[in-house]
């Protein structure tokens, strides 16, 4: 039997912190509190196990191991105290999947209208996977995709189905 196009695994222990602020004013403080530079537009910046993602002109998403959420949250809150900003633990809001393998791009290409090949190595793309919102970045030998936890089952089924054996997009 043919092999699946990619391995789909749920990321366990994923923590996320949403940061909403005027980045032109608070960016340096956020970067200092986290020890990660503020990413470029639609980019991500990486420091160890932490990834800071640009979500929109006034929003960042910090993706990090679940057990580091509390100290990071405290550091952010301290550095932004008294400023017009929002820092929130949204770890339970979203679910993450790893799509790994040489054909991982094909799995996602079936589900999203976005041009993944145009995404830079350190980029993050917000788009949709079939009917639900998602965000995609490159990780290891494939991609990581996050979506809302309320549609986690749908997203998992989508990915597993798109990765079904014998459904490669390569010309035969």
């Amino acid at each position: 039997m043919a092999e699946a196009l990619a391995r789909i695994t749920e990321i366990s222990g994923l923590g996320m912190i949403q940061i909403r602020a005027v980045l032109s004013e608070t960016g340096p403080d956020i970067a200092q509190a986290l020890g990660i530079p503020i990413p470029e537009r639609t980019g991500t910046s990486l420091a160890g196990a932490r990834r800071l993602c640009w979500m929109s002109p006034d929003e960042l998403l910090l993706v990090l191991p679940r057990d580091q959420v509390a100290p990071a949250l405290a550091a952010l809150a301290a550095s932004l105290a008294g400023r017009h900003a929002l820092v929130l633990d949204v770890s339970d809001m979203r679910v993450g999947f790893l799509v790994q393998g040489p054909s991982a791009g094909q799995v996602l290409a079936k589900l999203t209208p976005a041009n993944l090949s145009a995404m830079p190595q350190d980029g993050m793309l917000r788009s949709r996977a079939a009917q639900v919102a998602c965000a995609i970045w490159r990780q290891d030998e494939g991609f990581a995709i996050i979506g809302f936890r309320s549609v986690a089952d749908y997203l998992r089924a989508l990915l597993v189905n798109a990765a079904s054996a014998g459904t490669s997009l390569d010309p035969r």
Binding site: R41, T42, S56, P57, P113, A114, N115, L125, R126, S127, R128
Partner: peptide, 9 residues
């Protein structure tokens, strides 16, 4: 954000 988005997005 500079992303070229499809109508469905």
């Amino acid at each position: 954000c500079g992303i070229t988005a499809d109508e469905t997005e």
